[in-house]
Design a protein around this nucleic acid. Structure first.
Lengths: 108, 108
DNA sequence: CTCAGCCGCAACCGGTTGGTTGCATGTCGG
DNA sequence: CCGACATGCAACCAACCGGTTGCGGCTGAG
């Protein structure tokens, strides 16, 4: 597996960088696949707004939706989420390295 | 340590959700503290644009800047980064749980 | 002292975004 | 068959965002 590039990771973070969308991901993670109507219930905004958010998340590869009867069920696709997590890991590791080098330079 | 809330995590992801900013964080992670002029060198955009991005990242708590002489040095503040990482961990864990429950329900 | 670097502030601009309303379409239940 | 329910599509809007230009203010080196 290659190291994730900023160009690939940024859209994922951008998709997660909205409170409503982050909430949607959380609800879908805990509650399993749910319809748009159900996801709309409990929020203060319109169904169409929710639909837009879902499409944004799908565009970033974080969600996948499939139609069942008259409703559409959305579910989390964890692969991109893992990718984003790995990116933060890389950043942290680099930072740790830089800190270690700095420490060593100070000691010498 | 409390579990991170969407309301707190979203701004961090939003700050990371831009390719230029993600690149800045990466460069500061690997290269240590750097001045604005140095961070601008190598990019295609203006110093003022870089400044804005740095301020956005600082607003999300990801960066800290201090003045030294006539230049300002920016460095990574890893605490928020870790927090964001933890949030993705929680999401992933919840997803794993949901998957396990689903699997169990199917088997029964 | 003077001048070149490095920076901050403010105004401005086009494009994106989050959200709405209105309407049309498809589907399940009785 | 018919009505209620779940969704899709399109237009519209205010606000935000990424980026630029122009200018003025410190700071350090010679």
């Amino acid at each position: 597996m290659r190291s994730p590039s900023p160009r690939a990771a940024a859209p994922v973070f951008a998709a997660l960088g909205d409170e409503t969308r982050l909430l949607l991901v959380a609800r879908l993670s805990t509650g399993g696949p749910q319809s748009i109507a159900r996801l709309t219930a409990g929020t203060e905004i319109t169904r169409q707004a929710i639909t837009k958010h879902l499409n944004v998340l799908a565009g970033a590869g974080l969600l996948r939706g499939r139609r069942r009867g008259r409703e559409q069920l959305w579910a989390v696709d964890p692969s991109r989420l893992t990718e984003a997590r790995r990116y933060l890991d890389v950043i942290s590791a680099q930072w740790d390295d830089a800190l270690a080098r700095l420490q060593k330079a100070v000691e010498e």
